[in-house]
Every structure is written in structure tokens, then in C-alpha cells.
């Protein structure tokens, strides 16, 4: 099935099995490899992208639900929230192995778009679906908070 959708602002047409998860469309067909595979069952959040502005696990998003959708991946994530998050990530030297960080950043940016100055609890709730086996959580929490403060300031 050919599906036309917008990826990082560009119109793309993808011809694949309509049950193909967006994750594999992004990686195998479009070579956007910043979106990672970690579990395949929406447990770890490594594949988080934005679909029509909403955070979404690409591993459980079939191509069939994406006709006309607007998809943003880590490669195309822009805007003041994204800039604030990346700056805070650098300030706190957040990543270790880095493999989950695309997903963490996609979720963090979505959180800040909705809640510009989140509390620790709101940060924990938003990022509860993003596993980091390196346990960089204390830095993620600090960085998201700092990014929020910067956005407000």
C-alpha cells in the first residue's frame, strides 16, 4: 500500500505492507536512523516520534494509520523547546550510551510544548515510558527542568 505522508516537513510516499510499523518505515525505507528500536512493544520509548504534534511510539504505529500524517523525527525536531532541550542536554552531559536519547528528547520536547515549566512529578509522568538502561534519569530530570526554566525566562 502506498501511503503519502509528511516526514520532517517533506512529502514522502512510502509503498510498503500497510501493517509495517512506522519505526521500520523510517529506518529501512527512509534511512532516518535517529529513531531507535528498543523493544518493539511500546515499553521503552526509544522509537518516540511526533505524529501530528503528538508524541507517538513508532514501533506500534502501522503505516495504515498515517495517510496524510505529519511526522517529526529527532532529525527534524526544531523550535524553541527542542533548542532548549538540546542545550540543557549538553549542559548536563546527559547521554551515556545515547541509544535511548532520541526518544527521551522527543518526549521532553513534547512535554515542554504542553507544559513549559514542568514540575519533577510532571517530568516523571511524561518520561515514565522512556527507559534508559544507563539510568541517566537524574540528569534527564535536571535538564528538562532547566530547559523549562530557560523557556520561561
Amino acid at each position: 500500500m502506498a501511503v503519502t505522508l509528511k516526514i520532517n516537513g517533506e512529502n514522502r510516499s512510502v509503498d510498503a505492507d500497510d501493517e509495517t510499523p512506522l519505526l521500520w518505515v523510517l529506518r529501512d525505507d527512509l534511512r532516518l536512523t535517529g529513531t531507535k528500536f528498543g523493544c518493539g512493544i511500546a515499553q521503552c520509548g526509544a522509537c518516540t516520534v511526533h505524529v501530528n504534534g503528538q508524541p507517538r511510539r513508532a514501533c506500534v504505529t502501522p503505516l495504515s494509520m498515517l495517510e496524510g500524517a505529519d511526522v517529526t523525527t529527532i532529525e527534524g525536531l526544531e523550535g524553541r523547546e527542542a533548542e532548549a532541550v538540546r542545550a540543557a542536554w549538553a549542559e548536563y552531559d546527559t547521554p551515556q550510551c545515547g541509544y535511548c536519547q532520541s526518544g527521551q528528547i522527543m518526549t521532553a520536547a513534547a512535554l515542554l510544548q504542553r507544559t513549559p515549566q514542568p514540575s519533577d512529578e510532571e517530568i516523571d509522568d511524561a518520561l515514565a515510558g522512556n527507559i534508559c538502561r544507563c539510568a541517566t534519569y537524574v540528569r534527564i530530570r535536571k535538564a528538562v527542568k532547566a530547559a523549562g526554566e530557560k523557556l520561561e525566562g
Partner: peptide, 23 residues
């Protein structure tokens, strides 16, 4: 759900079978 972790972050309009395991 929570801001940034909404029901629709994972759940779509229909059931979706996992490719790598049962369920």
C-alpha cells in the same frame, strides 16, 4: 494521560499485533 505520555502515545485506533512476539 500525562502531558507527553498520553494514551494515544501508544494506543491507536485499532489493535496492533506485535511483530517480534505474541500479543
Amino acid at each position: 494521560g500525562a502531558a507527553g505520555m498520553e494514551c494515544s502515545t501508544c494506543h491507536g485506533p485499532a489493535n496492533f499485533a506485535f511483530a517480534s512476539m505474541e500479543g
